[in-house]
């Protein structure tokens, strides 16, 4: 069983297929750098919310959610570093703004 995994949910049409591979590799690299897990042991899944089915603040949403499940016991300092690196790389690759991204790193 993987000690770290990601479930990424995007609004339909926001992030094309060609970028998803890059995003998955980025998540696996950050996991290796920060948590020491082998990239091969870090599954990443993507799913789309159909247009008209996702809202934020009562309006149609353009937000992506990156839900990480990580091995417990890390310090908050490490957790924050992990989430911040993910934010930075996700914005760099996808072109989204900081307000269009939610990242979580929950204890498995």
């Amino acid at each position: 069983m993987s000690r770290v995994s990601f479930d990424c949910t995007m609004q339909e049409g926001q992030i094309g297929e060609e970028l998803r591979g890059q995003l998955a590799v980025a998540l696996q690299e950050i996991t290796q750098d920060v948590l020491g897990e082998s990239p091969d042991d870090v599954p990443v899944t993507f799913s789309d919310i159909p247009e008209g089915y996702g809202f934020r603040g009562g309006e149609p949403s353009t937000t992506s959610l990156v839900r990480g499940s990580i091995v417990g016991g890390v310090t908050q300092e490490v957790r924050e570093d992990f989430m911040r690196r993910i934010c930075d790389r996700w914005m760099e690759i996808s072109g989204c703004t900081v307000d269009e991204l939610v990242v979580s790193a929950r204890d498995a």
Partner: peptide, 13 residues
Amino acid sequence: EGPAKWTMEGGMV
């Protein structure tokens, strides 16, 4: 519910 500190939104924990 989950701990707030496990989530970063808008670049802020």
